[in-house]
C-alpha cells in the first residue's frame, strides 16, 4: 500500500470505514490503521474537518480575508509575528504570502461588526503591523475542491453496453 494513495483516497472523504479502506487499497485493516496512526504522529494528517455551508443554516457567520503588512526586525521574524496572529481563535487560517502583502488571514466572525472590531482592536495594534486590507467574503462558490451547494447528478443512461 502506498501511503500517498491512502492520503489521496481519504483526502476528499475521510469517512470511508477502515475495513473498506483496507480492501480498496489492497491491504488489511491493521496495516491501514497503523499507517493512519503513523501519518497522524508524523504531522502529515493534521486533522479531519467537515465542510459546512453555513449560509444554509440559521447560524450567522461571516468570513473575511485580511491582508496584513508587517515590519520585521532582527529579533522579530515572520514566524514570531505569525504566532501573534494565529493564536487568536477567530483566525481560521494564516499564510505567509508573496506579493504586495506579507500575510493572508482567514477570519471567521458572527457579524461584520465583530470582524471589523477584531481588525481594529486586536490585529492593527499588534506591534510591527504596518497595514491591513479587509475583504469580506460575499459568497463562497468552491472550497477545498468542492463546489458549494451543487449536488452531483448522474446524467448517464441507466443501461449501456
Amino acid at each position: 500500500m502506498l501511503r500517498e494513495e491512502l492520503l489521496r483516497l481519504i483526502r476528499n472523504n475521510s469517512r470511508i470505514e477502515l475495513k473498506d479502506l483496507a480492501v480498496m487499497l489492497g491491504s488489511d485493516e491493521a496495516t491501514v490503521a497503523n499507517e493512519i496512526s503513523d501519518l497522524e504522529k508524523e504531522g502529515i494528517i493534521c486533522g479531519y474537518y467537515t465542510l459546512i455551508n453555513w449560509d444554509n443554516t440559521d447560524e450567522e457567520m461571516v468570513d473575511a480575508l485580511i491582508e496584513v503588512n508587517v515590519n520585521t526586525s532582527r529579533d522579530l521574524g515572520f514566524d514570531t509575528i505569525a504566532e501573534r496572529f494565529y493564536m487568536f481563535d477567530e483566525v481560521k487560517s494564516c499564510y505567509l504570502i508573496s506579493g504586495r502583502y506579507d500575510f493572508l488571514l482567514l477570519l471567521e466572525g458572527k457579524t461584520m461588526r465583530q470582524v471589523a472590531n477584531f481588525v481594529s482592536s486586536k490585529l492593527s495594534p499588534i506591534e510591527h503591523v504596518t497595514g491591513t486590507a479587509t475583504h469580506f467574503i460575499m459568497k463562497r462558490y468552491k472550497d477545498y475542491g468542492t463546489v458549494i451547494g451543487r449536488v452531483k447528478k448522474d446524467n448517464r443512461e441507466k443501461m449501456s453496453i
Binding site: 448517464r156 443512461e157 441507466k158 443501461m159 449501456s160 453496453i161
Partner: peptide, 9 residues
Amino acid sequence: ISLGVGEPD
C-alpha cells in the same frame, strides 16, 4: 438503481 452502464462516472 443500476450497475449497468458501460461508461465512466
